[in-house]
Design a protein around this nucleic acid. Structure first.
Length: 367
DNA sequence: TATCCGTGGAT
DNA sequence: TATCCAAGGAT
């Protein structure tokens, strides 16, 4: 199992780590300017599965637009999604608003101030709760994110698979044993800074790490073996026809379902055409696919359409579990009529809605 | 427990 | 190009 350090070594590690953090940590990150729970929380949610350099401009704009938890609680959802547009994992911002309303309504505006009570907030799991509790409220709990998994796995040569949810408990208990009791928030952030520099996933430099004396994997030359992580499944290919249908100066536009991928986002109609696609590339009879698409537009949307252009070279867009191949079709309505499903909107109107990246790619593909 | 949920960057 | 990684959480 784990070759646990004695108290003396733990204290030496804390001292070495925090000394380095004070001298070389990323002190200029905007969410480190102060440790108010609101700022810490917003930054932690944005940073989930998202790189620091990506988050910085979003964070600054978000704090301008929604300076307090009250502002966030009462903001229109469209404004929130527009502020989040391009960040991905959009349920994060929807859950954030629900959590803001929990704080305002259920807790009378007072922040929960322990890891355990913070986990009651929507979208706040074990990692984020520990991060807020330690950074904003000085509670000595380990925040186990991807960095902490990697750093601890290397320091102690831990062979448990970090892709297994059950492994989180092991790392959490280890972290709680070595966390600095006086400066838990700085300790957690120091581990993250270490994990994004000397002990990063790629281009690590353990020989110059401030904690190399404590790094068993470096001492034994096994850095590349840690962390142990099982491989993710490959994304499943899915084929769509994007229907860009014009009616004078408007386009056919519809809202996606409330749950699932890109929930509630507006896009042009996207038809699944896996049935028309052979193996790995478009391979269909021209008249067959064209007739099928026009038929579906009439039956599902109630509009008669003349398809005029097609782009057989598909756009590709990769999600975590799906790889989309999107062929863009253009057409015009034969006669003006109100659609059974979706709406006609001008380009000006639809640019006001937040759009997923795939929709941007579709617009760019138009001839 | 396994799967789902976006996007951008690095190699 | 394919793959992995990036301050995870909900179901």
């Amino acid at each position: 199992m784990i070759d646990m350090w004695d108290d003396e070594k733990i204290h030496a590690f804390q001292k070495t780590l925090l000394k380095w953090y004070d001298e070389a940590g990323r002190s200029t990150l905007p969410w480190r300017a102060d440790h108010s729970p609101y700022r810490v929380w917003v930054s932690e949610i944005m940073l989930q599965q998202t790189q620091v350099s990506t988050v910085i401009p979003y964070f600054n704009r978000f704090m301008q637009a929604f300076p307090t938890v009250d502002d966030l609680a009462k903001a229109p959802e469209a404004d929130l999604l527009k502020a989040w547009e391009g960040l991905g994992y959009y349920s994060r911002v929807r859950n954030m608003q629900k959590a803001a309303q929990q704080i305002v309504n259920d807790f009378d505006g007072a922040w929960p101030n322990t890891m355990q009570t913070l986990e009651a907030l929507k979208g706040v799991g074990p990692y984020t709760a520990a991060a807020i509790a330690s950074i904003a409220f000085n509670e000595p709990v380990a925040a186990i994110d991807g960095n902490a998994f990697r750093v601890f796995a290397r320091l102690f040569e831990i062979d448990a698979d970090i892709a297994q949810p059950a492994t989180r408990k092991l790392f959490f208990e280890l972290g709680n044993q070595i966390i600095d009791q006086e400066r838990p928030g700085d300790f957690n952030q120091a581990i993250m800074d270490l994990g994004s520099s000397y002990m990063s996933a790629k281009n690590s430099d353990p020989a110059h790490s401030p904690v190399r004396e404590f790094d068993a994997s470096y001492q034994n030359g096994t850095t590349d073996l840690y962390p142990v992580k099982s491989k993710a499944k490959k994304a499943k290919p899915v084929h769509y026809a994007a229907m860009v249908i014009k009616n004078d100066d408007t386009y056919l536009w519809e809202k996606r379902p409330e749950i699932g991928l890109l929930a509630n986002f507006w896009t042009v109609p996207l038809f699944n055409i896996d049935d028309f696609v052979n193996d790995r590339d478009v391979n269909w009879s021209e008249t067959e696919i064209q007739n099928a698409l026009e038929k579906q537009l009439f039956e599902q949307y109630g509009v008669k359409v003349d398809l005029t252009k097609r782009n057989l070279a598909p756009i590709t867009h990769i999600y975590t579990h799906q790889k989309w191949f999107v062929s863009v079709f253009e057409g015009t309505v034969v006669q003006d009529q109100v659609p059974k499903q979706g709406e006609w909107k001008t380009m000006t109107d639809l640019n006001r809605d937040p759009q997923p990246k795939i929709q941007e790619k579709i617009w760019k593909k138009l001839s």
